[in-house]
Simulated scan of single mutants.
Amino acid sequence: MSGRPRWQLVSLALALAGAGVAGYLTLVAYDESLLVCGLGDCATVQNSPYAKLGGIPIALLGLLMYLVLLGLGVVRWRLVHQTELLTSANTSIALAGTLFSGYLTYLELFVIHAICQWCVASAVIVTLLLLVEGWGLRQLLRAETSALVSAPAPPRQRRQQPAP
């Protein structure tokens, strides 16, 4: 693995899994006959007015989010010097996705009164992504802080007294 942290690989795997789930739900949004639901009432959720935002399937927005997370993860893998910035971006995107998934789960439970197993899977995946990315960002910031603390202080320069 050439010395790269495992959390980055875990993040890539989660983003890929999320893209798979959201990609499937995007297909279902355009062809409901593809829907397979073993638990819950996925059809009720998929046909609710909350399944689209401005005419765009929520699943498509989720797919785009996961693809961006996956893309940034790949770029981070290649551009090691940008790891902190890209991890900050991924953490922010995963936080937004987790908050939106929480809102959608609230709608499923208390407004639609139906649960979609695929939506729950996506909510779990994006929450795990947030935890992994947040942990990775914490590790990066901790290492940076340790480097700053352990670096020798630059020599003090004597202030020159103004000439009388």
Rank of each mutant, 00 (worst) to 15 (best):
L95N: 08
S122R: 13
W7K: 11
L64Q: 06
I93M: 05
G3K: 02
R4K: 15
S11G: 08
I58W: 04
P154K: 12
G54N: 10
Y24H: 02
R142F: 08
L39T: 07
W77A: 11
G20L: 00
V68K: 01
V111M: 03
I115A: 02
G97N: 05
T145Y: 10
I58R: 04
A43E: 10
L63Q: 03
D31F: 11
V28P: 00
L39D: 11
G136I: 05
E84N: 12
A96Q: 03
A29N: 03
T145H: 11
L99H: 10
A29E: 04
A19M: 12
C116R: 01
I58N: 04
A143F: 02
F110Y: 14
L67W: 11
R158G: 15
A121Q: 09
A163K: 12
A163H: 11
A94M: 08
M65E: 14
V80W: 07
R142T: 14
D41S: 01
W77T: 12
R159H: 11
T105P: 06
T83R: 12
L53E: 12
L85H: 11
D31M: 10
I112G: 13
L85T: 15
L12R: 05
P155Y: 03
W77I: 06
L69K: 00
R156I: 10
A51H: 07
W135L: 15
A22L: 01
P154I: 10
S122H: 14
L27Q: 13
Q82C: 11
L39K: 12
G38F: 15
A123H: 04
I56C: 04
V28Y: 04
L14R: 05
T83V: 12
G3N: 01
G97R: 03
E108Y: 02
T91I: 05
L140R: 09
V75D: 08
S2Q: 14
G38V: 14
V10G: 09
I56M: 09
L14T: 01
G71L: 11
L141I: 09
L39H: 12
L27G: 13
Y24M: 03
L131N: 04
L34V: 01
T44N: 05
Y24I: 01
F100C: 06
L63H: 07
W135V: 14
L141C: 09
K52N: 13
Q46W: 02
A94F: 12
A19D: 09
G20R: 00
E133F: 12
I112E: 11
S2H: 13
V149F: 08
I56K: 03
V126F: 08
Q139W: 04
Q161S: 14
L64K: 06
P154M: 10
L109W: 15
R78C: 15
G18M: 00
A59M: 04
Q161W: 14
L34Y: 05
R78H: 15
V132A: 04
V80F: 07
T83A: 15
V80Y: 07
V149P: 07
V68N: 01
V80Q: 09
Q139M: 05
V75N: 07
Y24S: 02
A29G: 04
L104F: 14
G71D: 09
C116L: 00
